[in-house]
């Protein structure tokens, strides 16, 4: 007696949500029964839903026939997985050693001031999420920040407003 979870996703409406769960079904079908399936499925689920709310974790647990607590345990262990909604643009300020030595802390202060949010938070309009990242390996360009897949390097705090403006509209 499987209850479907498709109609239990808060904040999303009718058709769009069905399609997303359909997509997730395909991923689950591909990995089900294979050893070590959970993490690849969570990667895919996060790509589809942008984050991993409890409903999605629950759905994955049923799909892979695991306990929800096991899925929750794995989801919260890895920093790459997020259980809260993310902004359209994720700003990741690299806090690797090279960037730290070159003043990444000042970049964060400036972004916090510009956006009025702290590290780990999302702006009310869900446009930006600010996070600190581990070394992204672009040490030659320190200090570095990423906005989704774009990398901005050799930055000074006064360049921050200009960068944010590019993504605002």
């Amino acid at each position: 007696m499987m209850t479907t979870v498709k109609d239990r996703c808060p904040g999303c409406d009718g058709n769009e949500q069905d399609e997303r769960y359909d997509e997730l079904d395909k991923v689950i079908a591909e990995y089900k029964g294979k050893p070590g399936a959970l993490i690849p499925v969570l990667h895919a689920a996060q790509k589809i839903f942008k984050y991993l709310p409890e409903e999605v974790q629950d759905y994955v647990a049923r799909g892979l026939e695991m306990s929800p607590s096991e899925v929750y345990g794995v989801t919260t262990f890895y920093s790459f997985f997020s259980t809260t909604p993310q902004g359209e643009y994720k700003i990741g300020v690299c806090m690797g050693t090279a960037c730290y030595v070159k003043g990444a802390g000042k970049l964060i202060e400036e972004i916090e001031k510009e956006l009025g949010i702290s590290v780990g938070e999302t702006t009310p309009d869900e446009k930006f999420t600010l996070v600190q990242t581990r070394c992204i390996g672009a040490c030659g360009l320190a200090p570095v920040l990423t906005v989704n897949d774009d990398v901005h390097g050799r930055l000074t705090p006064d360049e921050i407003p200009g960068i944010l403006a590019k993504y605002r509209d």
Binding site: G36, P40, H43, V74, S79, F80, F81
Partner: peptide
């Protein structure tokens, strides 16, 4: 290919293996 998910400790070989197996690393 198996993708990591942002846990430094997974660079340790036994943690990495546990992670490939689909568990907390």
């Amino acid at each position: 290919l198996r993708l990591g998910a942002g846990a430094f400790v997974c660079g340790e070989e036994t943690a990495l293996i546990t992670s490939i197996e689909g568990n907390r690393g």
